[in-house]
Simulated assay, not measured.
Amino acid sequence: MESLFRELISKYFGDLDYSTEPVPFGLTNFSRIITVKDRKYIARIYDRHTKNLENLLFEIELVTFLENCDLSFKVPGFLPTRSGHKYVELQGNRLGSVVPFIEGVIPDINSSNDVKEMGRTVGEISKAFEEFQTDLHTPAIQFSRFYDLHPLSSEETVAQFLLNPPFVVDDSHMALFRNLLDQFQPEHILLSHLPHQIVHHDLLIFNLLIGNNGKMNGVLDFDFASIDIRAFEPAICINHLLQFEDRTLDYLEIFLKAYSAYMKLSMAEIDMIPNLIRLYYLSLLCIYIGQYYSGKAVKDHFTFIIAQMSARDYWLKENKDNLKQTLIHLVY
């Protein structure tokens, strides 16, 4: 992998000296922070299983569109190589790119200011996504079709994983996983009536950056952006806030008030939020299973997410009515 990074960096910076350091998050691709002449960049080599050239060209066009939207925060635009291209084809059928490093710190979910900034940012970028149009191939990333999110994660390979898990997983968590897979078989759920648009799919704190002024400074990682059910975006963010169950609704209200300045949800979308959260977990777990079969070490990620899914499923059952009323009050 180091030789590929050297090849990638040379396409952008030639023989200039550089230093590298690891990025703190990310399992899907291979990324490094690089410093050249005291300026920082992110160099990324894409996973061959999840990023082909069509999908990368779509991501480049989407991010370029956002750069021209006069947003209140930055997005990491793709830098041109020395030959003028915004990506590099590397040895071994790998693709790579370099983007600017955006300064900031991840939002603190314990901070009402940061939660408000998250809500405002998710609303603002969702509003911008409504206007995006392209003639390019759009990635087939739909979290309601969880068996199609990784080429090595099919209904058959997921069943094989469940039959013979390669590491210890709590039996009750695996039982819930099986039950939800059966409940939400793609052909069993009717979601086509819900509004669709571009969805980022990963607006978690790890892809958001707060600046020194307390305002959102950057939104990162459009790797999973595609056309999907619009309400997946707030559902994924609501789930993120639900990690703090002792005061969930207080912080959820802060988030939703800021989000609603840009976006509203229909009653059909509000009714579906709990199940969209469950589908989000199924999608993550199926992606991890695909990554396992591609040779990645996913044990810690998988066991963490499946335990979180169990806790969230219980919370959603206990708080279904309160959650719905909060959503109706703030975003309907």
Rank of each mutant, 00 (worst) to 15 (best):
L136T: 05
L136M: 08
H137Y: 11
H137I: 06
T138R: 13
T138L: 15
T138S: 12
T138Q: 07
P139N: 03
P139G: 09
P139A: 09
A140N: 12
A140Q: 12
I141A: 03
Q142T: 05
Q142E: 05
Q142G: 04
Q142A: 07
F143G: 12
F143E: 10
S144V: 11
S144T: 12
S144G: 14
S144I: 07
S144D: 14
R145F: 07
R145G: 06
R145H: 13
F146R: 07
F146W: 14
F146T: 06
F146G: 12
F146H: 14
Y147I: 10
Y147M: 11
D148V: 07
D148T: 14
D148K: 15
L149W: 15
L149D: 15
H150T: 14
H150G: 15
P151D: 12
L152C: 15
L152G: 12
S154I: 08
E155D: 08
E155R: 14
E156R: 15
E156C: 06
A159W: 08
Q160E: 09
Q160M: 09
Q160A: 13
Q160D: 09
F161M: 11
F161S: 04
F161L: 12
L162N: 05
L162P: 07
L162R: 05
L162K: 06
L163G: 05
N164K: 15
N164L: 08
P165L: 07
P165M: 07
P166G: 11
F167S: 06
V168W: 13
V169H: 08
V169Y: 09
V169G: 10
V169E: 11
D170G: 13
D170V: 10
D170I: 09
D171L: 14
D171Y: 10
D171K: 14
S172W: 13
M174D: 06
A175H: 06
L176P: 04
L176E: 05
L176W: 10
F177N: 07
F177R: 04
F177E: 08
R178A: 07
R178K: 12
R178L: 06
L180S: 09
L180G: 13
L180A: 08
L181H: 00
L181W: 02
D182T: 12
D182N: 07
Q183M: 02
Q183V: 03
F184S: 04
F184M: 04
Q185C: 04
Q185I: 03
Q185S: 07
H188P: 00
H188C: 05
H188Y: 08
H188W: 04
I189K: 02
L191M: 03
L191H: 02
L191Q: 00
S192W: 00
H193Y: 03
H193F: 05
H193R: 03
H193P: 04
L194Q: 00
P195F: 14
P195K: 12
P195G: 13
H196P: 01
H196I: 00
Q197Y: 02
Q197G: 04
Q197M: 07
I198Y: 01
I198D: 00
I198H: 05
I198A: 02
V199T: 00
V199F: 04
V199C: 00
V199Y: 01
V199E: 02
V199R: 02
H200L: 01
H200I: 05
H200Y: 02
H200P: 00
